[in-house]
Design a protein around this nucleic acid. Structure first.
Lengths: 134, 134
DNA sequence: CAGTATCCAGATCGATACTG
DNA sequence: CAGTATCGATCTGGATACTG
């Protein structure tokens, strides 16, 4: 019943979106699953303050410079992080999470939490499936 | 403060996950952003009953046979849909959502809903960013 | 009907090298 | 320091053709 309510609400809302809005919605959702975007935002949230490029690069273990740059640009473009450049030598650039970025994380975390809590059930499902397939 | 609570809870939980569990968690989350998986599940939820392969193929507009097969296999493997084969000629195969699949959708929809409702703010952020970049 | 098999174009991502 | 540019391996996904 709670299900039906949520479903109906989302179906109605989705019907009111233009094609452009629908595309953008999907793109934003994509950030959630993106290998790095969520991790980058997580680092910026827990830092509770701006971080330099190299600090983020340290914290997000395994990311390449190229991928980090790309992730940060996307997040900046979508208003989830800010990028502040200081006219110094050597150059200093600081990244920080925005209010909408925090909102995003607040909405993502419950889902992430549920999946993490359910991981045992997914493992069992896979074990059964892989077993059936011999 | 609600933020901090959720964050802390998720950080603690994530620390208890083995590497294998963490990988699986990420894979499941990936389904959320996958172009087709969520759409397929949505179709199966709203159908309120099993659907044949060709019916799903009709409902999920634009998907190729190959991609649909792959999406259904993944969802089946992760326990979110069931696949029932009938020994008939011509062959009949029916797909249905599972309880855990419904749970998944229940946890995804609020996020989707928030993004859809916030789409105007994301559009504005992009407009500003693209404007600044000349 | 419900797939599988094959080919192929485009996107993605890491590694590496270079620059203001 | 904070990138950009480039190259190559890998992955993805559609189109097409074939099968039990």
């Amino acid at each position: 019943m709670a299900t039906a309510t949520v479903m109906r609400e989302s179906i109605e809302l989705c019907d009111t979106l233009t094609e452009e809005e629908d595309t953008l919605t999907r793109e934003i959702i994509t950030r959630v699953a993106d290998k790095w975007s969520l991790w980058v935002m997580h680092v910026l949230v827990t830092a509770e303050g701006p971080l330099r490029f190299s600090r983020v690069h340290d914290e997000v273990e395994g990311i390449s410079q190229k991928s980090l740059t790309k992730a940060l640009r996307q997040l900046e473009r979508d208003g989830m992080v800010t990028r502040t450049m200081f006219a110094e030598v050597p150059p200093r650039v600081e990244y920080a999470i925005t209010p909408i970025g925090i909102e995003m994380m607040e909405h993502v975390e419950p889902l992430w939490l549920w999946v993490a809590k359910s991981v045992g059930r997914f493992q069992q499902a896979r074990a059964e499936f892989d077993g059936r397939g011999k």
